[in-house]
Amino acid sequence: MIAPKKREPAKWIFAKELKDCMMIEEKDPDEKGKPYVITPLGTRAKRILITGTVTSKNSEENLTKVAVSDATGTFYVNAFANDFNIEQKNDLDGLETETLVTIMGRINPFRTDDGVYYFNINPEFVARADSTAVDFWNLRTAYVAKRKLYAIREAMKSETPDEDGLSKLGYSREEAEDAMRAKQQYKEYDFQRFQEVAQGVIDSLIKPSSQSTETKKFVLEYVRDNDTDGKGCRYEDVVIAASNQGMEQTEVDEILNALGSDGEIYEVSLKRYKAL
């Protein structure tokens, strides 16, 4: 009997996890398709499932490019007008900015001569979403990320960590393997910052009411009015302006995440925000 071919699982990761990625797994010369991407949390991914807000669209005859922002950053989705992608290209063409979407697709990595990686996603399906679907995805993606971060912390604490030891602590086999990869390949990564980002996403879902309308309005207007060089408002500037209004940095993070989840702003590049 021929063994059934296993489906490549779709990983649920935030835009930040993909953007911070600096590692591609080497492929066997005989292996077809794109290589696996190894993210800072150790996730080994070829295919991802994302949700977010369409923040820009560039539609041409042969190629449609769409930027989809989640609460932590932006995914870049490209669909070509070829036999394999025409349905997905048509679906992307039908989207407007500010539409909420769910997209599953394959990661297409690109490495510059300077060794910097960029990633776009070739969609396999594009579906319109509602805010409940986006919140659900945010919550579970934060949950998956936090469990991985806890496993990484355990791996970092131990001098001789291994998958079996982490499994005994209650982590799944995949979480244990991911933690080992993260420890080996992203030793210097700022896991604490990622933890704060993931927690910020959860907090924005738990206590959106704790952020007063005024403070949210202040941050949103500040982001809108202070995109001075067209590259987006700088995170540091928002924090300083907000602290002048008596806000803590953690509160600013929560508000930025909440505004991202609401589709009001998006992270155009690292720590640069644009209002929609």
């Binding site: 409940t132 919550l139 959860i202």
Partner: peptide
């Protein structure tokens, strides 16, 4: 279909677990 109440209940369950 996942509802808004389901999301709230997932949040409570996650708070307990994490």
């Amino acid at each position: 279909r996942i509802s808004r109440d389901d999301v709230k209940s997932f949040i409570r369950e996650m708070e307990v677990e994490l």
